[in-house]
Design a protein around this nucleic acid. Structure first.
Lengths: 137, 137
DNA sequence: TATGGGGCTTCCTCTTCCTGGAAGGTCAAG
DNA sequence: CTTGACCTTCCAGGAAGAGGAAGCCCCATA
């Protein structure tokens, strides 16, 4: 099938499929006599795999590793599980970071009356010189 | 003072200070006769402001807006509060997204025995054709 | 047969936010 | 005089594509 159909069936845009190929995540697709890339149902399956893994936040590089494990009939499931768990830890760290930001922002926003007066503790805090209890991270 | 000292006092690297200047976030610094940039205590204060705002996750562009508000003695505090709240909503969306990923990953990881056997539901799920209840997002 | 509309190809630029490095000027100390 | 530490500019890269231009290819229709 053409790249457009593979895109539609996998949920990965044609543009992105070419990009994945260009960076080596996907093998070069075989070409029809007219130069068009030709995809099989198996390729669509791979694309879907990639799309799901990306959706879970794995980097393109990590997806490459997952694909390798996927194709390796001898792999140990522990390897895959380790990747999933590492990803979970990443997420945990990111969530914590975001929650720290949010908590600071909530605190600042609540202390700002938010009307037409120029007086604003949010700006005052951002501008404050080094000081404990401020909004730095 | 030289850029290095400004960097040290503000927590923004010299490299990054030059970058901020190059993209217009900061005004061009005045130069000494030898061509070196010259910074004042006021500039350091601005750099610290920028650094804190970036630490709260505001984009460079948004920090520019915050700086404008900061310098505008006539600003309405409501404008600043609105930016803080918009940022909070951004964070909320991101956290939700991350938590959805995490929940899927936790589910997958727990269903994988994680030993030396090749059998792995994580890969199986990623590879699965279109199906409800899978790990797509 | 000419034409039109998609779809395909490659290549280049833009985005965000820096970081690293190369080549070269400056300054203070030993 | 020579280090070595700073400073300068400029260029490249990285993550993960999106957007768009220029140019084929294929099919259908008037």
């Amino acid at each position: 099938m053409h790249i457009g159909e593979a895109a539609q069936q996998s949920g990965v845009t044609a543009k992105t499929i070419r990009y994945y190929e260009s960076v080596g995540l996907l093998a070069e697709a075989p070409r029809r006599p007219n130069g068009y890339r030709d995809y099989s149902a198996k390729d669509v399956e791979t694309l879907r795999f990639v799309n799901r893994a990306r959706g879970l936040g794995f980097s393109v590089h990590q997806v490459g590793e997952l694909l390798e494990l996927y194709r390796d009939r001898q792999r140990a499931s522990a390897d895959v599980k380790a990747m999933a768990q590492a990803r979970i830890e990443d997420i945990n760290r990111k969530v914590e970071e975001l929650e720290a930001m949010r908590s600071t922002l909530l605190h600042l926003a609540s202390s700002c009356h938010g009307d037409s007066r120029p007086d604003c503790p949010i700006l005052a805090d951002l501008a404050a010189p080094l000081r404990s209890g401020s909004a730095s991270r």
